[in-house]
Design a binder for these strands. Sequence first.
DNA 1: TTGTATGCGTTATCAC
DNA 2: GTGATAACGCATACAA
Lengths: 325, 325
Amino acid sequence: MATIRDIAKLAGVSVTTVSRVLNNHPYVSDEKKEAVLKVIEEINYKRNIHAVHLSRGFSNLIGVVLPKIDHPYFSSIVEGISEEAIKHHLQLVLFQTNYEPAKELEALELLRGTLLDGVIFCSRAISFDVLKEYKNAGPIVLCEDSDQSHFPSLSIPHEQAFQFGLDYLISKGHTKIAFTLGRMEGPNSKKRRKAYKTKMKELGEPIRSEWIFDKCLSITDGKQLMEKLQHLEKKPTAFFVTNDQVAAGILLSAEQYKIKIPQDIAILSFDNQPIADIMGITTIEIPIKKMGKLAVQSIIHCKEKREQTNKKMTLPFRLIERKTV
Amino acid sequence: MATIRDIAKLAGVSVTTVSRVLNNHPYVSDEKKEAVLKVIEEINYKRNIHAVHLSRGFSNLIGVVLPKIDHPYFSSIVEGISEEAIKHHLQLVLFQTNYEPAKELEALELLRGTLLDGVIFCSRAISFDVLKEYKNAGPIVLCEDSDQSHFPSLSIPHEQAFQFGLDYLISKGHTKIAFTLGRMEGPNSKKRRKAYKTKMKELGEPIRSEWIFDKCLSITDGKQLMEKLQHLEKKPTAFFVTNDQVAAGILLSAEQYKIKIPQDIAILSFDNQPIADIMGITTIEIPIKKMGKLAVQSIIHCKEKREQTNKKMTLPFRLIERKTV
DNA sequence: TTGTATGCGTTATCAC
DNA sequence: GTGATAACGCATACAA
């Protein structure tokens, strides 16, 4: 492989000049520049990017940590991240973790090893205590409704949003409200649970553990939910679910159980993905792609200012009324 | 940042010994190894990965090129790629291109610049002529039904599969068959079109250009298709569509047009994503995740043998009969 | 405006 | 077993 030294020799200039041409630096005479460009063209030279990175000390690579790319929520975030990353000439390194802490650590180690200029956690399984050890490794941003003050975070206010959703259901006459979560111990789910507890107390309704369903994320989960619903002694009149996929699963299997929506049971979900529009699902919109965009901007900000911020950024949500409540 | 030289000094050994410990090489006495490990632990040393890459000459990074991550087909491929990549300690660098050739070239340039050890094209917009210029840049694999003999490729036989699907529709009494494509000029679509032409000729049916719909990829596209169908003078009795999303869109909007499926119009699609199961869509299964897996294996094979293969790999498809035909 | 010399942090070679 | 030392290829102070 040819190096800038070869170019320099062939063009009759110094390596510095070659490097200047390569990086569009000023102070290169047009003739030398041309000579260099000509040689580069001739021998089809390409820079060794590892050498560039080593020399520069950074890479323009950022890590994106998520449990599963094959889920609309996460692929939407990545889409948002990607669109913004392109603008800033950043490349994305994907870490599909299945919530295995070891995989998440891999990203953090690569951040510390300076392969990555930053890491975006779309979701996480590792604890804060572990995460904190990487505070100085480089920019880290969390896409979650976070209470900590060590890392910047990005989310809708899940507690408020969930309360808002409950109020809406209540305003439609529901008090018997069941709900589903994606991952009981996830930070966002915790907020949602808290909101539920508060509101049920206000209403004087008991908290029925059998009305709280964990690990509901996909269409299939929604479908299975309808099966489970059959075996419930006391039946809720409304279901506040994790996301539009779960809602879609419910809608798609409602018919076979002869359940009418919203007459027999109302469905309210989160996200507002295209499927919600198409199936007429009433949902609370989360600006998912915007989250991705802001996450990238946060990383860039940290990189440029060379400081870790810990700003908690709250995004707006809004109710999209359609036909399931 | 501490370097191996610092470690060496502190542990009273040479940099070579430190490097050996770091890479689990043999021929290091237990005492020295321990001393090194102790220092590493103490000062919380981490390797600079750029330096490792520069020195080694490769990176364990592979590029994944796709138009849009936010589509089930592509996120499924990436899921398959990711699962296999993890096994081989490979990291994925994502290139979301929107079919812009410049973005695809970026991946190829990084391959040539040795940042990437290989590139997987889940789909592509650039021409073969351009692609061929990167033949020696490193391993490249194409997830498409390809006729070229320069790069390894990976796909179901789209022509056969489409013919098979048409035969199935014909066996159910259909001869008035319309179809949709994702991207008319894509290699897979070309095969499908060819199969259609052949089969219609056999049947003595005319090719109606108004029965061929391009750019149909999403649920929304499927929904819009039903709208377009209304304005058709001659109506088909069957629709052979790009993928399960399009089929789902059709199903979800059929009711509002008072169209019964499969009585009024039969729907056959490709992929067999979860939504096909849930909505009872008859579909031709494509082993998408397996494609991703094999793509990674192909890259690894090229890397290890240090040779570009050009093997065309054909994956099996199968019909999943459900309720839409 | 140009060039020399050095640093970036690691791995590989080869002699001991 | 161990350790100098030379790559690896580029960027950049500093000198000219």
